[in-house]
């Protein structure tokens, strides 16, 4: 059953890859790449169990963190054309901050 699940995740990755390449807009690509990262984490988990070496989940844990940073970087850069701008909360909620 784990093998079938592994293959299902790989199939899901292939489908998402097609969407990431086709686009059509940048946001479709971001969405597909982000989801692709999630599937990779699941695949890493499955591979660990299928090969009988589940001790190496650190890599999956790392991906769960790093994928998020990449997604945010692309979205921010595409909208603000800069890395230096702080992302502010809206004016209504700003009173609650700090």
């Amino acid at each position: 059953m784990l093998v079938a699940a592994t293959l299902a995740v790989i199939a899901a990755m292939a489908l998402l890859l097609a969407r990431a390449i086709m686009g059509p807009t940048l946001y479709d690509r971001v969405l597909a790449v982000n989801s692709f990262g999630t599937k990779t984490v699941l695949l890493l988990g499955f591979l660990g169990f299928v090969t009988g070496r589940p001790d190496f989940l650190d890599i999956a844990l790392l991906y769960a963190m790093i994928n998020f940073v990449g997604t945010i970087a692309i979205l921010k850069f595409f909208r603000y054309r800069s890395f230096g701008v702080p992302l502010v909360a809206s004016k209504n909620s700003a009173q609650g901050e700090e």
């Binding site: 998020f68 945010i72 921010k76 890395f83 230096g84 701008v85 702080p86 992302l87």
Partner: peptide, 8 residues
């Protein structure tokens, strides 16, 4: 990530 969210 800190720089991305809270500014450089």
């Amino acid at each position: 990530l800190y720089a991305l969210i809270f500014g450089l």
